[in-house]
Design a protein around this nucleic acid. Structure first.
Length: 361
DNA sequence: CAACCGTGGAA
DNA sequence: TTTCCAAGGTT
């Protein structure tokens, strides 16, 4: 393949059609870095309003470095994969202290930062500093799987390393940032997963899969396994002022560091789909036990509110929300606290709980 | 390597 | 309704 011609065709196409995105206003590494982290596993249209708000509140490395983690999390609320922003925050603090606030210019230094992997290193260093380093994401994997008829599973780490090596042989010494972004733009708008739009492709003449008529059968990708299902009882507990009992989740795992309504796994995993009086009685007994275990308060009046269903990346929660009808008196101890009426904006919750709060108001 | 880690939109 | 997924990284 004439790699020079391939690069030129791709760059010409990209420079003609590229979108006017808010992180493409200049070549500052910090906003580019923020955008790359937000864009991980997340759609461009979803990211844009989050990016605007985040950059207004934390416009520089120094501003983000001195922020409180709980405040930063609030600006990420709803984006998901919350460890991304916790690691970004930690990494930016490291840049502020160790590198005087300037994002390092070498692969070795950037890779050391938390939450920064090979893709983010290549994206930031190539787009901000125009360094010839590959930025291989899902788009680029798909594009090259078709371009070179790569038969291996594009989900494997080995394939990703292989494609990074291939891209390195294409990447121009000038315009590396545009080249990387062009590959991603091509994957996002033309060389899409299902039914690629080869008729619109600027490099279709270089594509082995299209030449073989195999563009719709590549790339190969292992299908994701089904998520496990958990049955949970969620508690709505209020005190005399109407404050709601909430608690903070651990600093690791699902929704790390975020707040939540108290909940417990259902003990009897027996079929609950029947709304028999018996199953309701069993549930109510569990609710009363859960409340007493958490607060020591012996509630007697409670009622079923509603069922909720929420899908996470690898687990599904089937929830039954119960409300204690009487005010509960308890001095909340960490990780619990009473959230006063209209103070919800002080705490960050996963959408699983914001969905419930929306129904309550 | 495989599992973990969110969310909402599209086919 | 089900499936897949969208500019990944960590363990």
């Amino acid at each position: 393949m004439d790699k020079q011609a391939f690069v030129m065709a791709l760059l010409d196409w990209y420079r003609a059609i590229q979108r006017d995105l808010p992180w493409r206003k200049n070549h500052d590494p910090y906003p580019i870095w923020v955008s790359e982290v937000m864009l991980q596993q997340t759609r461009v249209e979803t990211v844009i309003p989050y990016f605007e708000r985040f950059m207004t509140r934390y416009p520089t490395v120094a501003e983000l470095a001195k922020a409180e983690e709980q405040d930063v999390l609030k600006y990420w609320e709803g984006l998901g994969y919350y460890s991304r922003v916790r690691r970004l925050h930690a990494a930016v603090r490291e840049v502020e202290q160790k590198y005087g606030g300037e994002v390092p210019r070498t692969v070795e230094e950037m890779l050391q930062l938390p939450g920064v992997g090979s893709y983010t290193v290549g994206a930031v260093l190539s787009i901000a500093y125009d360094l010839p380093i590959p930025a291989v994401d899902g788009n680029v994997l798909r594009v090259f799987a078709r371009l070179c008829t790569i038969e291996e599973d594009i989900g494997s780490a080995r394939t990703k390393t292989m494609v990074e090596n291939i891209v390195s042989t294409f990447i121009p010494t000038e315009g590396a940032g545009d080249f990387n972004q062009a590959l991603m733009e091509l994957g996002a708008t033309v060389c899409v997963p299902r039914t690629p739009k080869c008729i619109q492709c600027p490099v279709v003449n270089f594509c082995q899969a299209h030449q073989d008529g195999r563009e719709s059968e590549l790339p190969h990708k292992q299908s994701k396994k089904a998520p496990r299902i958990e049955e949970r009882i969620v508690l709505l507990v209020r005190d005399i002022k109407g404050s709601i009992l909430i608690r903070q989740r651990p600093t690791t795992g699902l929704l790390a560091g975020l707040w939540e309504l108290p909940h417990v796994l259902k003990r009897n995993m027996a079929p609950m789909q029947t709304e028999s009086l018996q199953s309701m009685a069993v549930q109510q007994t569990e609710v009363l036990q859960a409340i007493e275990e958490i607060t020591g308060f012996e509630a007697t009046q409670m009622s079923f509110v509603s069922d909720y269903h929420h899908v996470f990346s690898h687990v599904v929660w089937n929830m039954s929300l119960f409300s204690v009808d009487e005010p509960v008196t308890w001095t909340a101890q960490s990780p619990y606290t009473w959230m006063e009426v209209d103070q919800q904006q002080k705490y960050t919750f996963g959408q699983v709980f914001n969905k419930i709060f929306t129904d309550l108001s």
